[in-house]
Design a protein around this nucleic acid. Structure first.
Length: 674
DNA sequence: ATCGGCTTAAACAGAC
DNA sequence: CGTCTGTTTAAGCCGA
């Protein structure tokens, strides 16, 4: 007992320490701060806008006065008011130009116009009115934008509590409307100026210094607006752009990339580590737009079915629907894949929450005010998760409080009611044992491979595999099927973010396992000793584990039938009691073929063991739970801690971006050893 | 209740 | 001497 709490408390402490000490986090921090200050001070922008607006008004006043004087001085020369149509369709200025140089006339220009006296008073009147109207409109838009921004902030906060996708939808719609309005507005201005130009009233030279930078654009030139817009909506656009082609989104994405990285990074950063996956993993969110755009489907994009692992080519939407109904009907496989997706999403949510928490801590540490004030909405299942005696006690005290759930909130678990958000405490604690609830043992589709790989690489989530399995995995992945201890270490750190901390603990465990299990054979080498795997020995252990859940085996088998190539390796891998979710990376990676087949053999062998006493299949469960040796905490309704059945990706060819040692220089791995 | 597997911790020894 | 590697023991948790 003492032992249990003592060491774990220790590791916990180090975990906390490590968690905040890695270099790249600091990187994030820099941009975060920059971005944050920006996001935090919409008032500044608005103020500028107001100021500019005032200036404009002033200019208008002057113009009016001049106009009056002119009127008094000269008679109306009978010049008809230029029947300018505000919708000048002809002559188009490149959009980019229009965006960059929003044309509300500057006071200088106004003066210029007036002085040139090329216009009749009526013309001037009209122009002025138009100008005024435009500015008014713009101001209103800015106001609107401001409100939207605030509302969005609010929404984001609420999202953290994991609620109200409906409202978000609303806001999203409003934002869309707003954006369109903005666009219209800009076009209007553009046309306005164009008409002026046409009439020779206004000469805008590209280089004219006064123009583009003038106060006129008023505090917010469109690009800036768009940047801000993007900033505010980054969470949404990032995902929506993946599946749909909202013109409005195009608008935002075009200019941001070049000019506002720092700003956008503010909000994006917290998710940076998982960002790439988010877009891929959250079709749920896309369903929002799906409703608005009947022909854009979250599962359909670029003529391809986006069902995980499918990628079937569908000529048109109809054929896609057909395909969807036929190939992805409600069956075991689809259900399983759904669950996998759920898993993935949940894991990502967790990671996101954790990153957010980290961000909070960083900001706090750096004395940066948070934009998420009381953003302490409790993850839905936080309470229950905390009831885990062990987890609760181990959870770093400061880790829980500000752990809003993901802003990508509208994740709607397919089969479950409330989105199950795991407590993030588990991620921040040290090496505690993972408990895997049965429901998380879900078959994996190949589509999850890369994602999971990235997931474990980036997320400090303890992989649901035993040390022995991981070690074996590492060794088998090596070209020579043998690794030195250090190489095994490296593999761990390379493949799992989780193992970039508490090195002393898990390295000790690795050594312990190497020594303990007969399946690991030490071979003297020229340059030292390497470890190999004795498959025979390794397989000796398996049968007893798998024998436990016949129904799962059955399920596995049944699914085996239809998922053949895709999931074969996976399922085979699942047979590996210790690597419940061996990834199907071999599909895209021929080098893994051997491994996959080897595992498959294991599966077959294992199944022979259990075939005799199998009972009815239970689609809701997966073989993993039977095969999973990792300790699972008893949390019937609590999916958290579900480090679950994310597939462990095997990459025989080590990803270039993860080149040993150097990559984790900033990691406390070695420090931990000392 | 028991057993076996797994994890974690720790002591220890030998090599570098 | 300190670190790394490897072995071993012990304790606790968990599922079967």
């Amino acid at each position: 007992m003492m032992q249990e709490s003592g060491p774990e408390a220790k590791s916990n402490g180090s975990a906390i320490q490590n968690g905040s000490s890695s270099g790249n986090h600091l990187l994030e921090c820099g941009s975060l701060r920059e971005g944050r200050s920006n996001g935090e001070t919409p008032a500044v922008d608005v103020g500028a806008a107001d100021l500019a607006h005032a200036q404009q008004q002033q200019a208008l006043q002057v113009a009016r006065q001049l106009l009056l004087q002119q009127q008094q001085q000269q008679q109306v020369s009978g010049l008809k008011s230029p029947k300018r149509n505000d919708k000048q369709p002809a002559l188009q200025v490149p959009v980019s130009v229009a965006m960059m140089t929003p044309q509300v006339i500057t006071p200088q220009q106004m003066q210029q116009i007036l002085q040139q006296q090329v216009l009749s008073p009526q013309q001037l009147q009209v122009l002025l009115q138009q100008q005024q109207a435009l500015m008014l409109q713009q101001q209103q838009l800015q106001e609107f934008y401001k409100k939207q921004q605030e509302q969005l902030q609010l929404q984001l906060l609420q999202q953290h509590a994991g609620k109200q996708p409906k409202e978000q939808q609303q806001v999203a719609t409003q934002q869309l409307a707003f954006q369109q309005q903005l666009l219209q507005m800009q076009q209007l201005q553009q046309q306005h100026v164009l008409s002026l130009q046409r009439q020779g009233l206004l000469t805008i030279q590209p280089g004219q210094p006064a123009l583009p930078l003038q106060p006129l654009a008023q505090g917010m030139i469109p690009t800036e607006l768009q940047q801000l817009w993007k900033e505010v909506t980054s969470g949404h656009t990032a995902e929506e752009t993946t599946g749909n082609n909202h013109s409005s989104l195009d608008l935002t994405t075009t200019c941001v990339s070049s000019s506002a990285p720092s700003k956008t990074s503010l909000i994006m950063n917290p998710h940076a580590s998982t960002n790439g996956q988010l877009s891929v993993h959250t079709p749920k969110r896309e369903s929002l737009s799906h409703e608005e755009h009947p022909h854009s489907h979250p599962l359909y994009g670029h003529g391809v079915c986006k069902w995980p692992g499918c990628e079937a080519v569908c000529e048109d939407f109809q054929s896609f629907l057909k395909h969807l109904n036929s190939e992805h009907a409600l069956d075991d496989r689809s259900t399983a894949q759904c669950r996998v997706q759920m898993q993935v999403v949940q894991q990502l949510e967790l990671q996101l929450a954790k990153d957010k928490e980290r961000l909070q801590a960083m900001m706090t540490h750096l004395h940066v005010k948070s934009t998420e004030p009381k953003a302490t909405p409790q993850p839905l299942n936080l309470v229950s998760s905390v009831t885990l005696s062990k987890s609760a006690s181990e959870a770093s005290p400061q880790s829980l409080p500000h752990t809003p759930t993901t802003p990508t909130a509208p994740i709607t678990p397919v089969t479950q009611g409330p989105s199950v958000i795991t407590t993030t405490s588990m991620h921040t604690v040290g090496p505690i044992r993972r408990r895997y609830s049965d429901k998380y043992n879900v078959p994996i589709s190949s589509a999850d491979i890369a994602q999971n790989q990235e997931f474990y690489k980036n997320a400090e989530v303890r992989p649901p595999f035993t040390y022995a399995s991981l070690i074996r995995q590492a060794i088998l992945e090596s070209p020579e099927k043998q690794l030195t201890l250090n190489e095994i270490y490296n593999w761990f750190t390379r493949m799992f973010a989780y193992f970039r901390r508490n090195a002393a603990t898990w390295k000790n465990a690795v050594r312990h396992n190497l020594s303990l299990h007969k399946c690991f054979v030490r071979v003297e080498n020229v340059k030292g000793a390497v470890w190999t795997v004795d498959e025979v020995e390794f397989q000796k252990r398996r049968p007893q584990k798998i024998s436990g859940n016949p129904s799962l085996i059955k399920n596995m088998q049944s699914s085996h039938a239809y998922c053949t190539p895709l999931n074969a390796a996976l399922q085979a891998s699942m047979a590996d009691n210790s690597i419940p979710l061996y990834t199907t990376a071999s599909m895209g990676n021929p080098a893994l073929g051997n491994l996959a087949s080897a595992i498959r053999e294991e599966l077959n062998g294992a199944m022979e063991h259990t075939n005799s006493n199998e009972s009815g299949s239970s689609p809701g469960r997966s073989p993993l739970q039977a095969l999973h040796p990792v300790h699972v905490k008893e949390e019937p309704l609590d999916p958290e801690e579900a480090e679950g059945p994310l597939s462990l990706v095997t990459t025989a060819n080590h990803s270039p971006d993860f080149d040993h040692d150097r990559d984790y220089e900033d990691e406390p791995v070695n420090e931990d050893m000392e």
